[in-house]
C-alpha cells in the first residue's frame, strides 16, 4: 500500500500541496516524506524536509552541553558546523543552536538528542514544529533568493555554512547555505503556520528558473 501523509500522526505542514503535485511518499521515522514527483528533477528544486526530525536547544548552558554530547559547535554565531553523517548544527547566538539531520541520514540521532535535553539551563526548543524546513537546491538558487531576500547570498559573501536570520518574502526565516554536495543549496527554516504561503511564494519565484518541487530521493 502506498504511503500517505495522513497515515501518520505527524504530517508535513504542506502535505496537501505535495499530494497535488503528485508526490510519491516514503516513511521516514514517524512521518511521510515526498521522495519523487512525476516529472524529471528540475534544475532548481524545492525539497520539503519538514517531516524530518530536528531540534533546538537554548539557554545559558546550551552550547556547552551540546559540545559535551559530542556534537560540533561552531566557533561563531550565525555559523553552521556539519556532523560526520552530514547533519548540521546551526549556532544562532551565544545561547542557542538548531540541529538538523542530513536529509537522508541521521534523523534518529537527532531524535535521540532531543529526548536527552536535560533542562536546567539547557532548554528544549520545539523546532520541528515551530519551523518548516525547505531546501532550495540548484545553480540558480542565489538569483532566485535575490527575488525574496535583501541579504547578499553570493558564495563569496555567504559561503557554505553561513547563516542569515533574515526576512524572506517578508517572513522571518533562517537561511543557511548547504554544506554537502556539489550543487549549491539553501536550507530555509521559517514559521510552520506560514509554510503553505511560503512554499507557494518560493515556487512562484522559482518559475523563471524552471524550478519545481524536488523529492528527497532526487537529491543526488
Amino acid at each position: 500500500m502506498a504511503v500517505t501523509p495522513e497515515h501518520f500522526n505527524r504530517r508535513s505542514f504542506i502535505y496537501p500541496r505535495l499530494i497535488e503535485a503528485g508526490a510519491e511518499f516514503a516513511e521516514v521515522i514517524d512521518a511521510a516524506v515526498a521522495t519523487r514527483y512525476p516529472h524529471d528533477a528540475p534544475a532548481l528544486g524545492l525539497v520539503d524536509l519538514s517531516p524530518l526530525p530536528r531540534t533546538g536547544i537554548k539557554g545559558p548552558r546550551a552550547l556547552e552541553w551540546l559540545a559535551a554530547q559530542g556534537w560540533p559547535v561552531p566557533e561563531d554565531n550565525n555559523q553552521a558546523a556539519h556532523t560526520e553523517s552530514g547533519g548540521m548544527v546551526l549556532r544562532l547566538g551565544n545561547r542557542e543552536a538548531f540541529v538538523l539531520p542530513a536529509p537522508r541520514g541521521d534523523g534518529e540521532t537527532v531524535h535521540t538528542l532531543e529526548q536527552s535535553i536535560p533542562g536546567d539551563g539547557v532548554w528544549h526548543m520545539p523546532r520541528r514544529d515551530s519551523h518548516a524546513w525547505f531546501l532550495l537546491r540548484g545553480e540558480a538558487g542565489v538569483d532566485c533568493m535575490a527575488k525574496l531576500c535583501g541579504v547578499d547570498l553570493r558564495e563569496a559573501q555567504f559561503p557554505r555554512g553561513a547563516i542569515a536570520q533574515t526576512s524572506v518574502a517578508r517572513l522571518n526565516t533562517i537561511v543557511c547555505r548547504d554544506m554537502a554536495g556539489a550543487t549549491p543549496g539553501f536550507h530555509l527554516l521559517a514559521d510552520s503556520a506560514s509554510a503553505i504561503w511560503f512554499w507557494d511564494a518560493l515556487l512562484d519565484a522559482m518559475q523563471e528558473f524552471d524550478g519545481g518541487p524536488l523529492g528527497i530521493h532526487e537529491i543526488d
Binding site: F13, R170, L171, D191, S194, W197, F198, D204
Partner: peptide
C-alpha cells in the same frame, strides 16, 4: 512588484474548509 503578505494557516485549516467554514482574517491568521 509581487506583494508579499504572509498568511498563517492552522494545521486544521483544510478540515475547517471541508466542514464548510466561513473563514475570517485574524491578524495574519
Amino acid at each position: 512588484g509581487r506583494g508579499f503578505d504572509p498568511v498563517r494557516y492552522t494545521p486544521m485549516h483544510q478540515r475547517h474548509v471541508e466542514a464548510g467554514a466561513t473563514m475570517m482574517v485574524a491578524g495574519a491568521w
